[in-house]
């Protein structure tokens, strides 16, 4: 049976992990390669590196980080942040990334999705979406630039379009639940999962174990992106897997 995936996300700034996890035996929690290895050994199903760097120069550091990680870690690695062109895709894939996540660039130029899917295959095109419930609660709007600008686009229309353009997966972050630790956004995740036939990774709001179960069952998500719950040492990957086993959620053991 297909497992539900647990995907730790590491924010990387100028080649250094921001909010690293204090694994035992890790000398440098800021080193993305060491962190990736530790998460791999801990049983993470995939990894996401999110480059939160601003400058192009610092971005070239990210290519090195990806290349070094791919030499030692043999689970799927997604890289996101600042990817704007098909050439950026090519560069990151060449360095060993398996999937590329795009957000703002896809909203500004949706053909980036179809061009990348055609050149490199849908399986490597992950569309990241920041969504927020409209004031009148009639649906969700899609935001760009890290949630700073409302595009006025409807979430469900956008996910329908990106699937048609050839995206392989959707990484949905709810701006309403992100950082709250009150649980994932179940209505938004369910609505997206119901209208697309590609996997949906839920992000934003995990604070306790039951939140994972809720979003994977009620929310219909295929995977959970996990950041702060690991960073602050509240839970380990193994804790989550043990919980999944107990709750009869299919998980890789």
């Amino acid at each position: 049976m297909l497992s539900k995936r647990i995907i730790p996300c590491l924010d990387v700034h100028a080649g250094r992990v921001v909010k690293g996890v204090n694994f035992i035996d890790i000398r440098d929690a800021g080193d993305p390669v060491q962190m990736a290895k530790a998460f791999n050994e801990a049983g993470a199903d995939e990894l996401v590196f999110l480059d939160i760097t601003a400058s192009a120069h610092e971005r070239s550091i990210m290519s090195d980080v990806v290349a070094k990680t791919a030499e030692e870690v043999f689970i799927p690695l997604t890289v996101g942040g600042g990817i704007r062109t098909v050439e950026d895709f090519r560069n990151m894939l060449k360095n060993g990334a398996d999937k590329i996540s795009v957000n703002t660039a896809a909203l500004k130029n949706p053909t980036l999705i179809s061009e990348a899917a055609e050149k490199f295959g849908s399986q490597c095109v992950v569309c990241a979406i920041d969504a927020k419930l409209r004031d009148d609660k009639s649906g969700w709007d899609v935001y760009l630039n890290g949630g700073r600008v409302n595009t006025g686009r409807d979430l469900l229309e956008w996910v329908y379009e990106i699937e048609r353009l050839g995206a392989g997966e959707i990484l949905l972050t709810s701006m309403d639940t992100d950082g709250t630790k009150d649980g994932y956004d179940l209505p938004a995740t369910r609505a997206v999962s119901d209208i697309v036939n590609i996997p949906v990774i839920a992000s934003g709001g995990a604070g306790q174990m039951s939140h994972f179960k809720d979003v994977l069952t009620v929310g219909g998500a295929d995977a959970v992106l996990v950041a702060s719950i690991f960073h602050y040492g509240d839970y380990t990957v193994q804790d989550v897997k043990d919980y999944f086993i107990k709750e009869n959620i299919p998980v890789r053991v």
Partner: peptide, 25 residues
């Protein structure tokens, strides 16, 4: 079920040169 089939799934192996047949999962 969604298509593509994407993610980790359990391989049910038969005795073979490529696979270590020890252990179920």
């Amino acid at each position: 079920l969604k298509v593509p089939h994407m993610g980790w799934n359990n391989l049910i192996v038969r005795d073979n040169a490529l696979f270590d047949s020890e252990g179920a999962d």
